[in-house]
């Protein structure tokens, strides 16, 4: 069965937008792919692993499904998902630089991560020192909590 927790790389540009596509075609396309099946970015971040063939649970522990308690955490979580997915494909592409469909998928996640970083920046402050929002006073680099602090629940 077509599993919603997985991304089928060849289908990535179509699967979400075209709901009329029948499941048989989707499976056939996947079967013809030589690529490993990937988790979605949301499942991948929870697991710490985008590649379903590499995923090995420990004992009977399940990956945590950490709640996002507010808008800031929700935006940060979505950014972490896309950046993690792009990073995982980055490591794969280091060894398979001619895998064109994986490059397409990498770019999809990379662009989403960049867009989410800009949106987070607008609302909560810059995440990198190259941000455009640093052209004001006071210096915005110190805005927002540092990553190691326990986050306020607001």
């Amino acid at each position: 069965m077509f599993n919603q927790n997985y991304v089928y790389p060849f289908l990535n540009n179509y699967a979400n937008s075209n709901t009329n596509m029948n499941l048989l075609n989707q499976q056939d396309l996947y079967r013809n792919s030589t690529m490993p099946s990937l988790f979605t970015p949301a499942v991948g971040l929870d697991n710490g692993n985008m590649f379903s063939n590499l995923y090995e649970p420990y004992k009977n522990y399940k990956p945590a499904n950490i709640p996002a308690n507010n808008e800031r955490e929700a935006m940060m979580r979505e950014l972490a998902r896309m950046a993690f997915a792009a990073h995982e494909l980055n490591l794969y592409l280091d060894l398979h630089p001619n895998d064109a469909s994986m490059i397409t998928l990498f770019n999809d996640y990379r662009e989403k991560a960049n867009q989410l970083m800009r949106e987070y920046d607008q609302k909560f402050g810059p995440l990198t020192i190259s941000s455009n929002s640093l052209n004001q006073t006071p210096f915005m680099w110190e805005k927002d909590v540092w990553p190691w602090e326990v986050k306020p629940n607001v």
């Binding site: 710490g48 995923y55 090995e56 522990y61 990956p63 945590a64 794969y92 280091d94």
Partner: peptide, 24 residues
């Protein structure tokens, strides 16, 4: 659980990195 979650996650990263190093 607040400690176990990131430990499980970091453990999984070791598995992925091992697989990539082995591949290379």
């Amino acid at each position: 659980p607040d400690v176990i979650a990131p430990l499980l996650w970091l453990r999984q990263r070791e598995i992925v990195h091992y697989a990539r190093f082995k591949e290379l």
